[in-house]
Structure formats: C-alpha cells, structure tokens
C-alpha cells in the first residue's frame, strides 16, 4: 500500500517536472483569466471548457503517437467531417440502425487511418503527403455523400452520446478521461509504446533490434484514424447534425497542442501528459477570450503569441541540448 502511494507520488512529481514550461504557461493564463473574468473559475465554466477541449484531445492523443513515430497526420480534420456526416447520414437518410451506423462510421475512419499507415509503412511515402491526400479524399467523400447538405438528427439516443451526463460528468469528458488513461498506459507501460518511441527515435536501430517497424507504423496511423472517427461522431452528436464542412483546421490545433506539450516534430520524443496540457492551454485561451468578448480577429493574434511564447519557454528549458543539436548539424 505504502509502496503504491510512493509510486503515484513520484509519478506526479515526474509529470510536473517534465512539463514545467507548459504548466507555467497554463497557470499564468489561468491566473490572468480568473482575474479578468469572474466566470472563468466557476464550476460550470470549467466543465464547459473540458467538454470543448475533449474533441481536440481525442485528435491530439492520436497525433501524439503519430508524431512520436516521426510522422504527421493532416487527415484527421477531414476524417472528423467524413465520419460525422456518414454516421448521421446513414441513420437519417438510409435508415440504418444507430449501433450499426456508429460502427460503420468508426470502421470507415479506422480504415482511412489504416490506408494512411499502409502507404507510409509499405511504400515509405512521407506521411505528410499520404495524409494530405487522405485529407482531400475524406473531405470529398463527406461532400459527395451529403451533397454538401448538413443533416439534422433528432434521434435522442444518438444525441445522448455527445450531450449526456453520467452523474455530474458530461460524457465527452468521461470518454476523454478514459482515453487519456488508455493512451498513457499504452505509451508508457506497453511494449507497443516503447516500439513507437524506438521507431521514431531511430528507425534503423529499431529494425536491428527486431521491432516490427511496419506493423507499428500501420497500427499508429490506424489508431489516429479511429480517434478522428470517434471525434467526428461525438461532435456530430453534440451538433445534432452531420456537417460535411466541419473539421477545417482541426489537425493544426491537434499538432499545436502536441508541440506545445513537447512532442518533437522530428519524432522519438513526446509525452501524453504534455499533450494534455497543450490541449488545455489552447482550449483555455479560446474560452477565456470568448468570455471577455474579445473579437475573433484579436483572438487569432493573442493565440499565436501565446503559442509562440509557450514553445519558447519549452525550448529554453532544454537550451543546452538544443544548441548541441544545432551544432551537430553545422559540421
């Protein structure tokens, strides 16, 4: 019992220590906002913030894996649109039963991710290109299927998925917590997680160590596709409609959250805890600025600066390391 306590204690310390920069930024923003808006720190608002960030969290978790692997997934925003539109459309337009429609929606998004992974792993096409293509394909499918029309859905059991509660907890937040737990275990305590770091850190070395690199790559992209499909379905439930035009720029928010959380663009480095904080920073900035009724144009500028500052703080922390890396490239 005692041992366990110590264990969790040191884990908390670890999380704080390795995310010092971003936590500082988060606290600063939090303090500033609670001074500027008396609503910010209310229970209702915080719940609302967490419900808002849940969508980006699903995507960012997948993106974290992909980026640790040294890749990038630009298609998630479009997969959100595609799967939301298809799932709702299947139910409303084609009369498919809900469970089947949701399963099909998840399956299609997962398949899109799988195709991404296959192309990256088998043919060594850069993930940037593969997922850029998939981004167009998925968006196209959403538009072709819906004819550009949004589809309203008033099926109450479907709407519960995204808007319901368990006790006081909104369901999207519950999913988010479950996923964070699953992905933390996956990345930190499973063999597979180590393989992701290994492939991203040094593909050659992973290969020589007998890591099934192709399998790892395929699975990671497939997971990202699944998460995007999941996000799409939850979002459509929250919106009471399937909208082919959603998802624009979602991939960038997810990438920004990962980078804020210390995931390296060149692979091999990253933490789920960092990504969580990254998602929170981005979500809280929007929420706070909205609460203060700041115009959306100014919001863009403020957001841009805060992200830049956060990343700067983070790189300063590892400055020595940074310089040596730079140096290594210069010779």
């Amino acid at each position: 019992m005692k041992k366990n306590e110590k264990f969790s204690n040191s884990m908390a310390v670890d999380v704080v220590r390795s995310n010092l920069g971003i936590i500082a930024v988060l606290l600063l923003i939090g303090i500033a906002l609670s001074l500027l808006s008396d609503v910010f720190l209310t229970y209702d608002n915080l719940i609302s913030v967490f419900r808002q960030i849940s969508n980006n969290m699903y995507l960012a978790l997948g993106m974290t894996l992909v980026m640790i692997l040294g890749g990038i997934d630009l298609s998630v925003g479009s997969i959100v649109a595609m799967c939301g539109t298809l799932t709702v459309g299947l139910m409303v337009t084609n009369g498919v039963p809900m469970v089947l429609a949701i399963s099909l929606g998840l399956l299609i998004g997962t398949a899109a991710g799988f195709i991404n992974g296959m192309l990256v792993a088998m043919f060594r096409v850069p993930s940037f290109i593969v997922t850029l293509s998939m981004m167009n394909v998925a968006k196209g499918i959403a538009y072709v299927y819906s004819g550009g029309r949004s589809t309203r859905i008033m099926n109450s059991s479907f709407n519960v998925i995204g808007t319901g509660y368990i006790g006081f907890l909104p369901l999207p937040i519950l999913y988010m917590i479950i996923m964070i737990v699953i992905f933390s275990i996956l990345l930190n305590y499973s063999k597979f997680g180590t393989y992701i770091f290994a492939v991203g850190g040094n593909r050659e070395s992973a290969h020589l160590s007998g890591v099934p690199i192709k399998k790892v790559e395929i699975i990671v992209f497939t997971i990202a596709g699944f998460l995007a499909a999941f996000a799409g379905i939850i979002l459509s439930s929250r919106m009471y409609s399937g909208q082919p035009s959603v998802g624009e720029g979602y991939e960038l928010d997810a990438i920004a959250a990962c980078v804020l959380g210390g995931v390296s663009m060149s692979g091999g480095v990253g933490r789920i805890s960092g990504t969580i904080f990254g998602v929170m920073v981005i979500g809280i900035i929007s929420n706070g600025l909205n609460l203060m009724n700041v115009s959306s144009y100014w919001q863009l500028i403020v957001k841009g600066f805060i992200i830049m500052i956060a990343v700067l703080i983070d790189t300063q922390k590892g400055r020595q390391n940074f310089v040596t890396k730079l140096l290594a490239r210069k010779y």
Partner: peptide, 20 residues
C-alpha cells in the same frame, strides 16, 4: 462574436457566451 457562419465554430463560442 464571429460565429463564422458555421455550426462547429459557433458551438464553443456560444457555450462560452452562456457561461459568461
């Protein structure tokens, strides 16, 4: 606020407005 004439953009903004 700018709801960008779109559902997914308007939803979180409206939530925040309701909170505030």
């Amino acid at each position: 606020q700018n709801g960008k004439a779109a559902l997914d953009a308007s939803l979180p903004i409206a939530e925040d407005i309701l909170q505030a």
